[in-house]
Design a protein around this nucleic acid. Structure first.
Lengths: 127, 127
DNA sequence: CAAACCTTGACACAAGCGTGGTAAGGTTGG
DNA sequence: CCAACCTTACCACGCTTGTGTCAAGGTTTG
């Protein structure tokens, strides 16, 4: 045998066998299998599993959070989109004075509902 | 009024008023208040809220995921711990040959249960 | 002042997560 | 061959998420 079986792994990592299967199914670890389908836990995976416990406890977060973080790490599109999102400042489209933009926002759906009123971009209250 | 109220914001962002409160309570946006406690939605927040919808739809992820990502972005400890975790390779402690290490793992709990057997680091099967 | 807003707090409910258990069946090793 | 393991597939249960709705009460404004 090239590594530990699931019950042995459970004992040395502190996870239940049930949870080890669950964690695998959540994509957090990848386990090689024997010919007949038994999961094989090598030293690396055992370490990962212990570290994972520490992580969850220390930062009080969920498996799904770690799963999402993993996804983040491997999906640059997602990462970039998120970064742009939470760095998004109260930034107006250039060249539109704040008051106008706001009123424009405020009336948008009304404009959409009654398209008789043509969109006036420069005039608002004053002239 | 310096910005939109919650129902107006709901109309221009596509979120329900209920969800706008929920999103705020989840820490995803911060909303200034009037003296009497009314939430004020400025252009920036409206933009963020729209972007948020796109994000969730485009990447099929949950509010809690975005919340976690935000936490990630502002907590270097967490970020570092996670990075170390999913980059963790099947790496053995140096100087211990793989086979021994494995068997050592395998018997650790037995050693812990019957401490009569002194920890032998070099001998494994033979006695 | 009364209508139309806003606030918080609560109840409700579907869907998903984390976890345990159990059953039916294949594998392994003494 | 049989006990002790492994596998997948289910059922169950409590907790969290996301969402709506409703009630009780303060604010704003025609």
């Amino acid at each position: 045998m090239e590594g530990l079986t699931i019950n042995e792994a459970a004992e040395t990592t502190g996870w239940s066998p049930r949870m080890l299967r669950y964690i695998e199914s959540a994509g957090l670890i990848e386990l090689p299998r024997t010919e007949s389908g038994y999961r094989i836990f090598g030293p690396g995976e055992l370490q990962r599993l212990r570290t994972l416990r520490e992580l969850l406890a220390r930062f009080d977060c969920a498996l799904s959070d770690v799963a999402f973080a993993k996804r983040l790490a491997s999906d640059p599109d997602l990462r970039e989109a998120l970064e742009r999102w939470y760095e998004e400042r109260p930034q107006l489209p250039e060249g539109v004075p704040s008051d106008d933009w706001l009123r424009w926002e405020q009336e948008k759906h009304q404009r959409l509902l009654q398209p008789d009123t043509p969109p006036r971009l420069t005039e608002t209250t004053a002239a």
